[in-house]
Amino acid sequence: MTTTFVDLDVRPLLAAGDEPFGKIMETVASLGPDVGLRLVAPFKPIPLLQVLASRGFDYEAREIGDGDWEVLFRPSGEHGPVGSAEEVSSERWPEPVRHLDNRDLEPPEPMVRILAEVEQMAPGEVMSALLGREPVFLFPELEKRGHRWKGGFDSGGTTYRLLVWINAKERVG
């Protein structure tokens, strides 16, 4: 399968002191089927590799000199995320406005923090969270409270990335 690529060079953003994660995820969200991302960065973006793997991308990274890296992300069709019952895969989710890293917390602390955060957020907002394990007891609680979620493990199976869309259940159906 031939993949076409959208180019994104985050070096200028980083040089200007900006955080490129939002821009990268925005670009990824806008990719059509069978379209990949060619990312150029001043370092090997290891956390991003895991995040995009959990969204179903394979990657190929190579150093292109001066410490800069080029990473090709291709849609793999595997590791597809799962989500709440209402999940419509083609629908575009808004960009997350809050990010939590709960990977080093013992259960059930990740669930506690996510629900605490969720209660602070406005309807329609999206939160992203990284976890060390699939939060199996959290999913029914999110659905009971009217939120939608989707999530999946990265290709290494060590980081679980979860997105929660606040009060989005009524948007469906």
Binding site: E109, M111, V112, L115, A116, E117, E119, F137, E141
Partner: peptide
């Protein structure tokens, strides 16, 4: 579980 995040709760 049902009130997590809505009010202060003890830890396990």
């Amino acid at each position: 579980g049902p009130v997590l995040g809505k009010m202060p709760t003890p830890r396990v």
